[in-house]
């Protein structure tokens, strides 16, 4: 028996999310009194793989076959379900993100399992197996029971946290025969170096209240001062107006984010926008309208014109950074 975790890598590196998944799997494995097995697919070196054992992985399966360097939902799902079978995994754990959303449901069917996506905590019991998830786009939680022997879970980022739990690294190479897929990637375009809104710890986000695209410079400046953990995000109308790229659009129809700090500038706080930000640890709102709904969802509020407040905030942040 075991608990299997698929730990995705980004150009050969794991992210904090990968370590959070291992921490979560360790908690699940404790209830079963069993081991945590991590599966890595792609080119990841030994030093990076061994990091997984610092958070509780008892064994790391390494599938580094060149054919797997490019993502393909069918191949990845096959490899993961083969690993789950050979390791007799009772529970298979994924992150809840765009890549794994293409694979975890396939793995679920292959294993004749029950799947709960968007888990926000460790299972409250394993017999029966009950776990809580977000539902109604963040407006509610649901306690869900899985009726199948095999379980597949996907965890929301930042829902569990990282816990150190050092184990001896046991890295084993893993093989899985390939089938051919009809879905072919014909072109990839990456504007590298830019942090995704999903990974940022701080988001400085702007709405239509900023009036024109040039004014987003004020938010970029704040993000620059806050450093490499920060980046700029926006509301749907801002992306629709092409003031900002669609990749920055946050909300029900955009990205669902969970940063430590979300600064909402000139954003009214429509329910569809809130659906994407309610998992943020702390929310700050800056808005001219003291009755804007965003304040109800916020921890700190400033009533004022963004074009006047942001330069002052940037000065204050600069002074703070200079002294820390």
């Amino acid at each position: 028996m075991s608990v299997l975790v698929y730990t995705e890598n980004w150009d050969g590196q794991f992210k904090k999310l990968s370590f959070e998944l291992i921490s979560y799997a360790s908690e699940v494995a404790k209830s079963y009194n069993t081991n945590v097995v991590a599966l890595s697919i792609g080119n990841v070196d030994e030093a990076e793989l061994s990091k997984l054992s610092q958070y509780g992985a008892d064994k790391v399966l390494n599938l580094s076959n060149a054919a797997y360097t490019e993502f393909n939902a069918e191949y990845y799902a096959k490899a993961i379900s083969e690993a789950a079978k050979s390791e007799h995994a009772q529970v298979t754990i994924f992150a809840n993100n765009i890549t794994t959303r293409a694979i975890a449901p396939r793995v679920t069917i292959k294993l004749d399992a029950g799947m709960v996506s968007g888990c926000v905590a460790a299972p409250e019991s394993i017999e029966p197996f009950v776990v809580s998830k977000k539902a109604f786009s963040g407006k509610a939680f649901a306690r869900v029971k899985i009726n199948k022997d095999n379980k597949v879970l996907s965890l929301n980022q930042n829902a569990f946290g990282i816990k150190e739990n050092v184990k001896a690294a046991n890295i084993v190479s893993f093989e899985c025969a390939l089938e051919t897929s009809k879905a072919k990637v014909v072109e990839v375009s990456k504007n590298s170096g830019k942090m995704s809104v999903l990974d940022a710890e701080i988001l400085v986000s702007g709405g239509r209240g900023l009036k024109k695209p040039e004014n987003f410079k004020l938010l970029e400046e704040a993000s620059d001062i806050l450093g490499s953990v920060a980046t700029v995000a926006c509301t749907k109308p801002v992306a629709d107006l092409e003031w900002r790229p669609h990749s920055e659009h946050v909300g029900q129809t955009g990205k669902v984010v969970a940063p430590n700090l979300y600064i909402a500038v000139g954003i009214s706080g429509a329910i569809q926008h809130l659906a994407g930000i309610t998992s943020s640890k702390v929310i700050v709102a800056i808005n001219t309208d003291k009755d804007a709904p965003i304040f109800e969802a916020s921890d700190y509020g400033v009533v004022g014109d963004a074009l006047e407040v942001m330069p002052k905030l940037n000065e204050a942040l600069k002074a703070f950074k200079a002294n820390s």
Binding site: A140, F141, A142, F295
Partner: peptide, 21 residues
């Protein structure tokens, strides 16, 4: 394969602390 046992609503935020502009 799964069954929702119960729903709940998120705890509402403590009130927003206002800071002068």
């Amino acid at each position: 394969a799964t069954e929702v046992l119960e729903h709940s609503l998120p705890a509402s935020k403590a009130s927003c602390k206002m800071v002068s502009a």
